[in-house]
Each structure stands twice: as C-alpha cells, then as structure tokens.
Design a protein around this nucleic acid. Sequence first.
DNA 1: TCTTTTTAGGAAGTATGCTACGTTATTTTT
DNA 2: AAAAATAACGTAGCATACTTCCTAAAAAGA
Lengths: 171, 171
Amino acid sequence: MEEKKAVALQETKNKSLKNRKFRELWNRPGYLIRRLHQIHLGLFAEECKDEDVTPVQFGMLSVLASGVEMDQLTLSMSVGVDRVSGADVIKRLERRGLLHRNRSEVDKRARVICITPKGAEFVENVRPKMARAQAKLVAPLTEEELAELERILKKLVEANNDASRAPLGVN
Amino acid sequence: MEEKKAVALQETKNKSLKNRKFRELWNRPGYLIRRLHQIHLGLFAEECKDEDVTPVQFGMLSVLASGVEMDQLTLSMSVGVDRVSGADVIKRLERRGLLHRNRSEVDKRARVICITPKGAEFVENVRPKMARAQAKLVAPLTEEELAELERILKKLVEANNDASRAPLGVN
DNA sequence: TCTTTTTAGGAAGTATGCTACGTTATTTTT
DNA sequence: AAAAATAACGTAGCATACTTCCTAAAAAGA
C-alpha cells in the first residue's frame, strides 16, 4: 500500500513536471519536429525548384526507379503515406508522364504502378538535388550529432510506427 | 593548383558518399522527420479525439491563453506557420467561438486576435492531453536521449530558421 | 506634402495527409 | 457453392501549409 502510494505520488510528480516542461511551444518535441519538417520542405523545394517535385513525389519515384512494379497501396505504404494521399500523388505523377497506372491482370481491383523511362531519367536528374537538401538540413551538426540524431529518429519511428496513420509494414 | 585539385577530389568523394548514404529512404533525415511528424499528429489526434483539435490550433490558443492580443501575422509567426495558413486556422477557431477577430482601431488593416473565455477554458482542458501526446511521442527514449534529441532539434531549427517558409522572429 | 515602399489581409490555386463512405473484386468461412 | 469478411480503389470532405496575385492602409523617403 505504501509502495503504491509512493508510485502514485511519483507519477503525479512526473505528470506535473511534464506539464510544466511542455508548457512553452519551444519545449514541445512535436513542435520542433513540425518546424524541422517545414524546414526540410523549404530546402527541398529550393533545391528542386526547376523540377517542381516534392519529397513524397521523389520518394515514390525513387522506390519505383529500381524497376519494381507494385500496386498503389504497397507503393503508398513503402513511402509512408496513406492510401488516399498516395493515390493523389500517383495521379499527379501520371499526369506528368513519370509513371504508368496499369490495371492488373491478376487482381482486377488493383492498379500496377511502374516508372516510365522519362520518370527514371527524372529520378537520376533529381537525386543529387535531393541529397543536397538532406545535406543542408543536417549541415549544422557534427558527424557524431548526425549519427545520434539518426539513431534516435529511427528508434522513435520504429517504436511508434503503429501510432502513425500510415504505418509501414502492415500490408 | 595541386591543393585545389585535392579539395575538388575530396568534395567529389563527399558528394558521392552522401548520394550513396541518402539512397535509401530510410537513411534520409527528411524522411525520418516527416514520419515522426505524422506519428505526432496521430498521437495528438488520438489524445484529443474528443476535442477535435490539432497541434497548430492548440499552439495558437495556448499562445493567446496568457491573455495577450496580437494581429494574425504575429500570431501565425509565433507558432511557426505562414500568414495564409495561420489565417485559415484562425478562421476555424473563430467559427468555434474560441477566439475573436476584432478590427484594430490603431491599424485599420489589422485584425486583433484575442481568446474568448470559452477558448481559455478549452486550453486548460486540452493542455494535459497535449502533454500526454508529447510524452508518448518520446516515451521510447531514455532521459539522456530525450535531452540530446531536444538539443539537436533546437540547434537545427535555429540554424535553419531562415530556410523555412515561415521563419520565426522576422516580424 | 507627395510619392514610393512596405505591410496586413483576402482570394484563388495546389500539394500533402488524413477520415468516412461506397463499389467492386478477391478471399475466407461455413 | 453461398455467405461473410477482407482488400483495392474511388469520391467527397476537411485541415495544414504553401504560392501568387490583389487591395488597402501605413510608414518611409524625397
């Protein structure tokens, strides 16, 4: 009983501690992550302004660039967006002639997505620009900090994967 | 001349190293950050499903909750979104009666935003849920890892602030 | 004072990223 | 084989988050 009380008290303490800690926007991890996401979008857009492409669009194309074919859902999941968002992105990429959406012979519900030669060329063209955006994003860090950041981010994404609305590896 | 050549060679090496490093989605910091951002949105939505509020909406309200008044631009910048996105969010919050948009007497262009009693109550109601979402997001980390993550994120956001499309402290 | 520039906001357009609902096709269960 | 569950996709709707172009007001400079 005594122990239980002590635990409850400790939990209350932790809770109010966290409430205090997260009181300012600047101390909320979620806020910092949102800001960094915005910054990456900005850097990516700047590097790729001639190509007019977004990180998600490039992500999809670079998955397809190895020559694999897959349905819309698999493709969406492999870049970590939900089915509907993915379908939108795919539609826009099709409109630009960077990929094909073929009806599957095996499964009449599915659309099989494959990259076009134009799309493959596009990927190789954009890849160095994407890499520059990534490099700029983490440029302020030392090598040790970058390694630590990547380790922690991967840990968080792996551990919380099911909390996302577009969890990976579900299908 | 020899030195210049060496430097150029080194740069080429670094570049191809980075190209190789960022080849897989999973090793792109921008990708990991986007995923973690999604995860936070998911956790926040889960905690606040009864209230139907987003992190940005809550961010705005919690800035206003101290009783300050400000124009739309200042408010938008203080939570790190651009003018237009901010105006949209403010419109929705006004529709729900959580804040007022009054024409400024001093500057006839500006709208002065202030929180309503209902809005203030809302903030206090939601604050613990927001804190729980933050806590869940970083729950997989040790205290040392959390401290390191926050330090690195702040460093990145500060250093890259101007790269964002909604830089802070500009106005 | 008058002109120029800057600033606050509105409106329209686009992309990402969801939820919810419906349709059709496939798979599983009975 | 028929019924039920599941799965892939489509459509509609909403929120965030930008861009660009516009108007009107304020500030700065000549």
